[in-house]
Write a protein that binds this DNA or RNA. Structure first.
Length: 484
RNA sequence: GGCAUGUUGGAGAAGCGGCUUAACUCACCAGCCUUUCACGCUGGCAUUCACGGGUUCGAAUCCCGUACAUGUCACCA
């Protein structure tokens, strides 16, 4: 297949959004699949809103997801610089060229004038667009404006009567009338290029073969094509991928919960789960299996299979996927992820001892099968910590009222006392022994112990819980719940 | 308001004119397994593809209209 030389070009105006991450992912997938290049460029021409922190966050989020770039702001490359504010003289050169060729012109209109014009057009039901009145200003008029202290912008003259055709890999051919575009600003009054201009210059100079980005840019594409035309450059291939919607079918935003990659990391999601999930939003592998490794996704991904319609972000499915990957993980890895969480929740001190690691290891063995995210362990911690427990409900109380309870608990205490070291395997054996000795089976053995130790009717396997608690807590809890 | 895009079950989706009495996955429901819960397994879950018209022997699939949703129309990207 042809090589995809693609780019992800975020604006550093906030943490990496989940939608941005998906755009980055699709670009990455195609680059890797075709043996091409994945480039990360920073579009920071909005001086007001761009920040270094956001740029750092974007870098870290991409790294966390495993979307490694071949060329980027951070690691360089032969088509740099990769930060737009460092490319200003390049844009100036092309803006000057357009000016000299009469394809662009200075516009001295004030924002108020433009605003009034736009309002009037909207009123009439027309598509608002600049009238072009500054295109043929005389030298005297220009001088007068300059004397007034007006700072001009540069507008691209978009020829009338043209068709601007976007050949889109996911949407097919989409045609726009150039009459509906208008002469738009390519360089702001402070000399900084606008997005629609800088993007075109960069994509051309960086030899981008395919522009793959979110659907919200589709309506901007004719403007960019107009710039390509004015500069006499060929257009790249385009692919506009659908938006990610929240559960209410509105564009994903704060009120839908976590929107940034960083938040998912903090909530205890695994990068491979997010990677897998994001790939499934708007793309389907076709077969029965949806749990796929990075390599399998790269292998099977294609733009032809990308859906046109927007996708709703289903948190339940992400959780299911994450749970799957947690069950696949090694205990060591889970322990490493759980420790920072337990520290932040106050279960562990800053200083982590060998004994702490042991303790967390036992906990993760107990919980690996139960949790969907690392942070889910918070819901279970009361099982492992503290002497005080509350009996969940009436049903649980009834369990403890059974006449066989003292027999079971005594047998448990006796056997545990005889155990040199408490581990899951040996504790499991004890249960078998108790069952044999007392002639009691299944629930009659496990439920009294479970309720006496945790106050609850269900939870992780008891043979995992008991070693976590250790002799001291077991004794104290039994004392409180069954007074034994 | 103009322009653009989209509309298959609660969600992601397959489907590209007859093989569809619409795959598969999540969720949900039932059963099995299991010391409980979960995991896992088995089965159930759209007579119908936003709606209306047309083309065709035949349409979820092609065409037109309507509705709804979203995007865009910035000296934001």
């Amino acid at each position: 297949m042809e090589k995809y030389r693609v780019r992800f070009a975020p604006s550093p105006t906030g943490p990496l959004h989940i939608g941005g991450a998906r755009s980055a992912l699709f670009n990455y997938l195609l680059a890797r699949k075709s043996g091409g290049e994945f480039i990360v460029r920073i579009e920071d021409t909005d001086l007001e809103r761009s920040s270094k922190e956001s740029e750092v966050n974007i870098r870290e989020s991409l790294a966390w997801l495993g979307l490694d770039a071949d060329e980027s702001v951070w690691d360089g490359g032969e088509f740099g610089p990769y930060r737009q504010t460092e490319r200003l003289e390049i844009y100036k050169k092309y803006a000057d060229q357009l000016l000299a060729e009469g394809k662009a012109y200075y516009c001295y209109c004030s924002e108020e004038e433009i605003e009034a014009e736009r309002a009037a057009q909207m009123e009439k039901g027309d598509m608002p667009m600049y009238s072009g009145k500054c295109m043929h200003l005389s030298e005297e008029q220009k001088a007068a404006y300059i004397a007034e202290g007006r700072k001009p912008v540069i507008r691209l003259h978009v020829p009338h009567g043209d068709k601007l055709v976007v050949d889109d890999a996911v949407r097919g051919v989409v045609t726009f009338e150039s009459d509906g575009v208008g002469d738009f600003v390519i360089v702001k009054s402070d000399g900084i290029p606008t997005y629609n201009f800088a993007v075109v210059v960069d994509d051309h100079l960086m030899q981008i073969s395919h522009v793959i980005r979110a659907e919200e840019h589709l309506s901007n594409t004719p403007r960019q094509i107009a710039v390509h035309n004015a500069l006499g450059w060929d257009v790249p291939k385009y692919a506009h991928i659908s938006l990610i919607l929240g559960e209410d079918r509105k564009k994903m935003s704060k009120r839908h919960g976590a929107t940034s990659v960083t938040q998912y990391e903090k909530l205890g999601y695994l990068p491979e789960a997010v990677f897998n999930f994001l790939a499934l939003l708007g793309w389907s592998p076709g077969g029965e299996e949806e749990i796929l490794t990075k390599e399998e996704i790269i292998e099977r991904f294609s733009l032809e299979a990308v859906s046109k319609s927007p996708a709703v972000f289903d948190m339940e499915k992400l959780k299911w996927l994450n749970g799957h990957y947690i069950r696949q993980s090694s205990i060591e890895r889970l322990v490493g992820l759980a420790i920072p969480y337990l520290q932040s929740e106050g279960y562990l001190k800053e200083e982590v001892t060998e004994a702490d690691v042991q303790w967390v290891t036992l906990i993760m063995q107990a919980l690996q099968e139960k949790i969907h995210t690392i942070n889910d362990i918070g819901e279970f911690m009361h099982l492992f910590v503290g002497e005080d427990i509350t009996i969940e409900d009436e049903e649980a109380k009834e369990v403890l009222a059974d006449p066989d309870v003292p027999t079971v608990i005594n047998a448990l205490k006796e056997h545990l006392a005889a155990l040199p070291e408490w581990n899951a395997e040996d504790v499991k054996k004890i249960f078998k022994t108790i069952s044999k000795e007392t002639g009691l089976k299944g629930k009659k053995v496990f439920m009294p112990i479970r309720v006496a130790l945790t106050g609850q009717m269900h939870g992780p396997d008891l043979h995992f819980i008991i070693p976590v608690l250790g002799p001291e807590l077991v004794a104290k809890r039994l004392q409180k719940t069954v007074n034994m």
